[in-house]
Simulated scan of single mutants.
Amino acid sequence: MIKKYLIERRSWIILFLCLQLFTIFVTYVDSSIPISSIVYIIFLSFIIFTIFLIIRYNKETRFIRSLEERENDFDLTSIAHPESPFEQIFETSIANQTELLKQVSSQNLVALEQEKDELLSWIHEVKTPLTAMQLIIERLDDENMRRQLTYEWLRIHFLLDQQLHQKRIHFIENDLYIEKTDLQEVIFQEIKSLQSWCIQKGIGFDVDLETTEILTDTKWLAFIIRQILTNAVKYSESADIIIRSYEKHKQTVLQVKDFGRGIDNKDLSRIFEKGFTSTTQHTDNAATGMGLYLAKKAAKPLLINIDVHSEVKVGTTFLLTFPQKNEFINITGICLLCLYYTRLNGISITYI
């Protein structure tokens, strides 16, 4: 401690010594000054300076010494009593709370899984009477009534389908099955499901597919195209929807172009957000704001890039760019990692 203190004050000590040496030097040079008297004064100065250092040392290091003593006392107490009663109570309380939170989290997870399974089961059960309703509607003689009922039936069917995929999309990696897919077959199947609605609105399709074979998951691709075509039909009136496919930079591009009301530029960056409908058509109660959000989310693990170009009162163009074949190594890695994780945790998964 003393050594540290002297080192910290060395500049002042050196200054004092230099002043004393300077005084001796002046006395030596000037013979009129008695050297004995100067030596005596320097000696007294040294004594006073030493006393001053001792007093300042005690005063300036008192607080530091008290901290060191407390630290030593604390160390000794810790060795004698590794855990005080307060520490034991605190650790026990934390452990109990952690265990309680784990139990509550586990119960909530089980409840959510049960709720999801019940909802999926209910959706599948509702699809049965919906199919029966479709057959009944097709047998109606009144053409106008049949079209109106078909439109309402389609709305219910698409909302249920959207809800079903919304619950499944969180586990999409477990449900992927990458295979060679006929793009034309998928598109025509989705157009067929919209046929009665398109006839009612006077909407046709101009389909020209240069590239028809792609590698993807057929079921989820159909869902993505369904959301885009549904929006195109919903917001168009008496106009053809143009569907094109071509190859660009060794990647297949699918173009879906409509001539509907279009999307405002300020909304383009938000159309894939969950629940977003529109700022210009905010009174549109038919929009749910979930279709494009789910389509974008489903496209991500499939490595499908979705671009949108639109102009108000002119139309909207969706561009789906499919990945190259070698890019599916990433998807395979994700699926294998997911499979390893689920097996490690004892979860059983059925691949469809």
Rank of each mutant, 00 (worst) to 15 (best):
I2D: 07
L6P: 10
I7N: 10
T23V: 10
F25N: 12
Y28W: 13
S31P: 03
S32G: 12
P34E: 13
Y40G: 08
I42Q: 08
F43Q: 07
S45M: 09
S45L: 11
I48E: 05
I48P: 02
I51G: 03
F52D: 09
I55C: 07
N58H: 08
K59C: 03
K59F: 04
R62A: 14
F63W: 05
S66V: 06
R70D: 15
R70K: 15
N72Y: 06
D73G: 14
I79T: 13
I79N: 08
S84L: 14
F86M: 12
F90M: 15
E91K: 07
S93F: 07
S93H: 05
I94K: 09
A95W: 00
A95F: 02
S105H: 11
E115C: 07
E115R: 13
K116F: 00
E118H: 03
L119R: 08
I123R: 03
V126R: 14
Q134K: 10
L135P: 02
I137F: 08
I137R: 08
E138R: 11
N144M: 07
T150E: 10
Y151L: 07
E152C: 02
I156M: 13
F158C: 10
L159K: 12
Q166E: 13
R168G: 05
I169R: 02
I169Y: 01
I169S: 05
T181Y: 01
Q184C: 10
I191K: 01
S196C: 00
S196N: 07
W197Q: 13
C198W: 00
I199V: 15
I203L: 06
G204H: 06
F205I: 11
D206G: 01
L209M: 10
L209R: 06
T216I: 07
D217I: 02
W220Q: 12
W220N: 12
I224E: 02
Q227G: 11
T230E: 12
T230N: 09
A232T: 05
V233M: 02
Y235T: 06
S236P: 02
E237Y: 11
D240C: 09
S245E: 07
S245V: 06
K248I: 05
K248R: 11
Q251F: 01
V253C: 09
L254V: 08
L254W: 01
Q255P: 00
K257T: 13
D258G: 07
F259Y: 15
G260I: 03
G260H: 01
D264G: 05
N265E: 15
F272W: 10
Q281R: 12
A287H: 04
A287S: 13
T288I: 09
T288W: 00
G291E: 06
A295S: 13
K296C: 08
A298D: 05
P301G: 05
P301R: 04
V308F: 04
H309S: 12
G315A: 06
F318V: 03
L319M: 09
L319V: 04
I329N: 08
L336W: 00
Y340F: 06
R343M: 12
I347P: 01
S348G: 03
I349W: 02
Y351E: 15
